[in-house]
């Protein structure tokens, strides 16, 4: 019972600190905190499918970018929607695309899905780069709104909601049991009545929609987006590394990994004024995590003894086929 209480108190303390943060720090640090919350939320959204269901999404930036572009287009001069009205629109658009991509590919092995999502993000970059209505390569501006506190609390709210939903759905409900069961052994999950294709699709849609909400807030926050800044592959790369570092398939791992890597990113930027070095760190982090910390930071605190990299084994096995989850 004791560790539970400790976790609960820690959580309350974190929420209080986060809620009071705008009164404690200046705008510079508030922006960093806003970014950290966004990455913690994005990593969590990637982890829904990648960690809990074991399906690796190499094009998650597509959904972040869809949310960003839908909000940017709807808030533009011609339509001038209020920000909050654009969120449901972004969610619907994202969900539709996730179904179109996921329904045919999630029935197959993970590699097909990984390639499809990666290709989808590439297609969207090209599409947004050549179309007039998206502003082409030059990108698209949004009505400036310079209230840092608003964006801090928007990201905070979205991240809190993302973690709350993840906890309730994946850690505390029947749905989570189904998702984890299909990750660990798909034929056995089917044999106990789980419609694995449907559950994977539901998880994918939830994961995509969550990323789109962060994209929408991000677009409004930075007031200017272009195809690379919201669809770019480096956005997905960061989410993947954050989750691997923090702990694939764990609730708090993505938050730890997201905050840690984003802070490293900012420190590098402060000292070198350039984030090229950061990319090298990302690459090194992937190698080191896979070799030495296959259960991530969260795995070091887990109460259960875990064979090293067991969740990672499932996801990778699913990706390359013939993995431990598919004996027959």
């Amino acid at each position: 019972m004791k560790p539970r209480w400790a976790v609960f108190l820690l959580l309350i303390a974190a929420i209080v600190v986060l809620a009071l943060l705008p009164m404690l720090v200046n705008n510079y640090w508030l922006r960093i905190a806003t970014g950290a919350l966004m990455w913690a939320g994005l990593a969590c959204s990637w982890n829904m499918l990648g960690g809990y269901a074991g399906y690796i999404n190499f094009g998650h930036s597509a959904f972040f970018g869809l949310g960003a572009y839908v909000t940017a287009l709807l808030m533009g001069d011609r339509l001038a929607w209020p920000f909050f009205a654009t969120l449901p629109a972004g969610i619907v658009v994202t969900a539709l695309f996730a179904i179109i991509i996921g329904a045919p590919t999630l029935r197959l092995r993970g590699a097909y899905f990984a390639i499809a999502t990666w290709a989808f993000a590439e297609v969207l970059i090209q599409f947004a780069s050549v179309m007039d209505f998206t502003g082409g390569i030059g990108g698209i501006g949004l009505p400036p709104f310079l209230d840092e506190r608003f964006f801090y609390f928007a990201m905070f709210g979205a991240a809190a909601l993302t973690y709350l939903i993840t906890w309730a759905l994946f850690e505390r409900s029947r749905f989570g049991l189904k998702v984890k069961a299909l990750r660990d052994h798909e034929p056995a999950a089917e044999a106990i009545g789980i419609n694995t294709s449907l559950v994977k699709l539901q998880t994918f849609v939830l994961s995509a929609v969550t990323a789109s909400v962060f994209g929408a807030i991000f677009a409004y926050w930075v007031t200017f987006i272009n195809p690379k800044s919201v669809f770019g592959g480096d956005i997905t790369d960061q989410m993947v590394v954050m989750v691997l570092l923090g702990g694939l398939g764990s609730l708090w791992g993505p938050a730890l990994g997201g905050v840690a890597l984003f802070v490293v990113n900012r420190i590098i930027w402060m000292y070198w004024g350039d984030t090229a070095f950061y990319i090298a760190i990302l690459g090194a982090a992937i190698v080191l995590v896979v070799l030495f910390l296959p259960n991530g930071i969260a795995g070091m605190f887990s109460r259960r003894v875990a064979k090293s990299g067991a969740v990672l084994d499932k996801a990778v096995g699913n990706l390359v086929g013939g993995g431990p989850g598919r004996p027959s």
Binding site: R174, F175, L177, K178, K180, A181, R183, D184, H185, P187, A188, A189, A191, I192, G193, I194, N195, G249, R304, A306, K307, A310, V311, K314, P324, P327, S328
Partner: peptide
């Protein structure tokens, strides 16, 4: 299954509960 088909990363109890989830 002839080769035990465990949900490896779930607890023993969760393995049983999963069977009742649907």
């Amino acid at each position: 299954f002839q080769i035990p088909a465990m949900f490896d990363n779930m607890s023993v109890t969760e393995n049983l509960l999963a069977a009742a989830a649907e």
